[in-house]
Nucleic acid binder design. Structure first.
Lengths: 133, 133
DNA sequence: GATAAGGGTTCTAGTTACTGGAAGGTCAAG
DNA sequence: CTTGACCTTCCAGTAACTAGAACCCTTATC
């Protein structure tokens, strides 16, 4: 299977797959013509990567998770620790974004949005005290 | 006022202030010794920038907002449009993150997290269908 | 006057995770 | 034999800083 088919199967752009090879996440063998050849193993890895990334894991974490995924003697605690840490980061981001959204939606609602210069949004930005932790 | 005092007043790191000058967001004059001098105007701009950034606006948007902020003949509609677009992006990000959180928290809960290799998280990543839009 | 601490300055390079584009080799069809 | 769709590599750019090196300025102290 060539790279564009692997892309179709995994949902990852071909560029991204090449990039993943470059940083050592996958290592597809090459055909005599130099083309990358993707078999079951590499496809599984790529799919795993695509899904882990979709869950928001950093590439660095994906590398670790992939190693654990392939390590039959892993401890599930190792996986769980990474996942929980990531989960906490997600929660924190959500909280940040919700604070932003609340502040901003109030400002937007207060703004007439016409051709006059008076603007509660700009005034709000001037005076908003810390939104972020 | 020198840069470190400006940093204290605005909450921005000095490095960031220099960066903002480099990209033309502020233009503090220089003292005879070459030091940047921050007066009222630049301080206001920096504070405005810090708060707009804290609300999650991209630097590009901050540039526009700052121009509108300084333009006494602006139309509030212009500001509102930018803010609403940004608000939509925030909402979308929140939705994405919540989907991730939900999936991930289920997986984490299902994982024993002990020294055995059996791991619902890895299994989940293997089989999770699209989390992201 | 020498020196040391604590400012300030510039410049380069690194970060994250790709993405776009150019230049050029390969392959199957007509 | 040419055309078009693949594939390859390599270089540069993105966002918004951040780290660090090398060096200048100021002030205080000895």
């Amino acid at each position: 299977m060539n790279i564009s088919d692997a892309a179709k199967h995994t949902g990852l752009p071909a560029k991204t797959i090449r990039y993943y090879e470059e940083i050592g996440l996958v290592t597809p063998p090459r055909d005599t013509n130099g083309y990358r050849v993707f078999g079951e193993t590499e496809l599984h890895k790529l799919t795993f990567l695509a899904r882990a990334r979709a869950l928001g894991f950093a590439v660095k974490d994906c590398r670790t998770l992939l190693a654990l995924y392939e390590d039959q003697s892993r401890a599930s605690a190792d996986v769980k620790r990474i996942a929980r840490t990531h989960l906490n980061e997600i929660e924190a981001k959500i909280a940040d974004l919700i604070a932003m959204r609340d502040t901003l939606s109030h400002l937007v609602q207060a703004c007439a949005g016409d051709d006059r210069p008076d603007c509660p949004i700009l005034k709000g930005i001037e005076t908003t005290s810390s939104v972020k932790a």
